[in-house]
Amino acid sequence: MLRLTGIRRSFRVGPTTAEILKGVDLEIEAGEMVSIMGPSGSGKSTLMNIVGLLDRPTSGACLLDGRDVSGLRDDALSALRNRLIGFVFQSFHLLPHLTALENVGLPMVYRGNGRPEIRRRAQAVLERVGMADRTGHRPDQLSGGQKQRVAIARALVGDPALLLADEPTGALDADTAHDVLALLRQLNADGGTTMLVITHDPAVSARCRRQTHMRDGRLVEPAVVPSGGASRRSDDSPLPAKGHGHPRGLPE
């Protein structure tokens, strides 16, 4: 599903270069729910940007859904992002002037779908996250937890291969955070959506089925896998079998 090998990323800072990622290897199977935990500055956001096709590694290979994405042009990356990646951000990043339904439908707009199709799919996925009665609300009429549910619906609407959640509970109070994580776990368990959760919070990380740690530009995986289905079989989830296996999201 996702295979990173020897990912390095360095940035120019004035006359010197700072290496943020120093050779990251990671493999995620379809249907997994993996966390990357680490303190700020450890490079986890940089890694997320690379996995999310927003950034390119300085060196190393990134295989997403069986496709080598290094060396793709910007348009091709945008198209892949649209089809393969669903983003959930800490600060929700909903467009304030659009309704929940319109926000959720946005990825489908860039896929070139027609309006009735977009509305139908957005409505369906809002129902899945329990927001069916808030479709006409704008973000400022929603609570933090509701906003994040809408954001999750937006990430799911295009049936992505990988849902990337960057501190998904970072802006929420403890109870709401718990609910949102429960929702993510349920979507992973029932819908088989592959998830990569990035967090600095051990409590959040602990609720993912497999945990990794980011430290000083390298990824370390604890030898002991806690119980809770980290070794989930990928064949008990219906989605990868019917959707993720064949090549899709080809650039136009």
């Binding site: 945008s78 089809r83 860039y110 937006r154």
Partner: peptide, 12 residues
């Protein structure tokens, strides 16, 4: 940036 993350190409 949000639109780009959701898959909007530069020309979009």
């Amino acid at each position: 940036a949000i639109r780009r993350a959701l898959g909007a190409r530069r020309r979009d």
